[in-house]
Design a protein around this nucleic acid. Sequence first.
DNA 1: CTCAATCCCGACGAAACTACTCGGGATTGA
DNA 2: TCAATCCCGAGTAGTTTCGTCGGGATTGAG
Lengths: 143, 143
Amino acid sequence: MVQLGRHFGTGPASLAEVAADEDLPRAYLEQLVTSLRDAGLVRSTRGARGGYELARDPAEIRMGEVLRALEGPLAPMICATADPEHATTCDRSARCTVNVLWVRVRDAVNSALDSMTLADLVPEPGAPTTLPTTTLTGALTPS
Amino acid sequence: MVQLGRHFGTGPASLAEVAADEDLPRAYLEQLVTSLRDAGLVRSTRGARGGYELARDPAEIRMGEVLRALEGPLAPMICATADPEHATTCDRSARCTVNVLWVRVRDAVNSALDSMTLADLVPEPGAPTTLPTTTLTGALTPS
DNA sequence: CTCAATCCCGACGAAACTACTCGGGATTGA
DNA sequence: TCAATCCCGAGTAGTTTCGTCGGGATTGAG
């Protein structure tokens, strides 16, 4: 995604390119990018000179979206999934008091991820690696 | 640990007890409790009528300590371990710009875990499950 | 003193997951 | 027409997690 971010605005980048730049197997990237496409984060163009490009501006893509697209609902335990579709109650839920903790961790992780956008991670060609400025957070309140 | 928390003050609890209460295999608990003992979170008494007990008051045991004792340094990626002893630089670190993100996630997780103590999770015999009040956080600042 | 209840320890094993491979098909620009 | 792409589903090696197994050391109770 960072690679596609660098490439943003200049048409699609082929998986072969990304694979070379990032030193990852092309076949593997194919798998990953499929999830990203299904999540609407990247657009694909088929045929010769085709490839992938970001569906939105890097600044509009929260890292939480990327990670959730790749990994599914981000939760430290099954009993703490935010997504009600994937909700599964473990058989211990009656006695277990730890759920509160997992929910907090889950929210902390998702807030942290959603507080940065892809733009924060795409290296500007000229400038040195700067600290990110984007902050749409405000959701880290622990209680 | 929650079980030991309930038992706090009334002498050691045997693994057999905990295993029964928590419906987990005793032999497995043995493994876990070894890490907890090595981390100084529980004390063991050998011989008949022996067992394990918390080394400190439940309110003085942060959940982060427990999790780190059981799982090692809590980091979403190898390149973001706080503990310099376990530090390993991945061969991608030169080009990779994502480290900042992992560090944020790591800190968010550890803060969330350290913001609750075992006491927050031990059910009071009389009272219903209440929301935790302990907050020694203040470390969640994202920038 | 003896013995049963306990902790202590190291090695082993199965199931699940992660990161990746493979082979072939569909689409499209040159 | 054909090569460069994306598309798709199935397979697989290595690691990790969760748990097993067998036996040894320690100690309170009778």
